[in-house]
Amino acid sequence: MFAQLLHPDVIIGILATGVRLATPFLLAALGEMFAQRSGVYNLGVEGVMMMGAFSGFWVTLTTGSPWLGVLAALLIGAVMGLLMAFISVTLQAEQGISGIGLYMFGWGLAGFLFRLLVGYVTSVDGFHDIPLPGLSRIPVLGTVFFDHNWMVYFSYLLIPITWYILFKTTWGLKVRAVGVTPEAADTLGVSVARIRYTCVIIGSMLAGMAGAFLTLGHTNMYADNITAGRGFIAVALVYFGRWTPLGIAGGALLFSTVDALQLWIQVLGIDIPYEFPVMAPYVLTIIVLALVSGRIWQPAALGRPFDREG
């Protein structure tokens, strides 16, 4: 019964699907990693993704250019990040609550704007797959990794890039310092507020881009609630990956590949009640989290507003 799953075409199909499905998680979670490394957790990722998905879609629909669409999603992400940073850093509001507020704001606003500006289901010409010359010819690996659109490639390039920035640059060191002991960083002349603002805005821009991937690099359309909880999974993946790019990438790929596997199990008509495949990625994530949570490290100042006087 499971023999069909071992067919090379099926394995390639599963892995390629997994790589594609991981893209929005990678973008959003690597961005959220910066915010959390600096001490701010932004639970509003889902709302930012919704706004990114909508603005990317709408700009593409009106201008015909998905590149302008992605730009719009990045800008909207930056604005929403600025809002979140203002509330959580400057006003020092409780981060969990303000993040949920940002989520509801983005979710509602995206639906409202869609009704106002579009109002019907339609599709756009999004980004096309660009098979990388040479690389895409490699058996198996070629189709799995090198036959996607540029946003997929970009999200994988982000893994080493964010790793380098976070661990090999002075700025990355400041981010990590601010997230652990903001008081010490402050005495050394690091502006805690500026670092946190920057990190939250970067994270939010990547979340906006993750949303735009759904509308411009995946489905080429917009519908209500298109993010379907992916923003919250991205936040969970940051914990799962222990605030490191490699850990997050591993988590995102694991989750997405199991998700792809379960789709194929169903498609091939393997006779298991469908509820089991559908919940498999979530169950697996919970199991892994439970296994690794023993000595879990987290940025010590995560969720703690910084007040020089306080």
Partner: peptide, 19 residues
């Protein structure tokens, strides 16, 4: 017959159709 486990997840539905 395959299910997405959702009513409104158009990205998952697209992926299922592709599979």
């Amino acid at each position: 017959i395959a299910y997405t486990g959702s009513f409104g997840d158009i990205a998952k539905a697209a992926e299922l159709a592709k599979a």
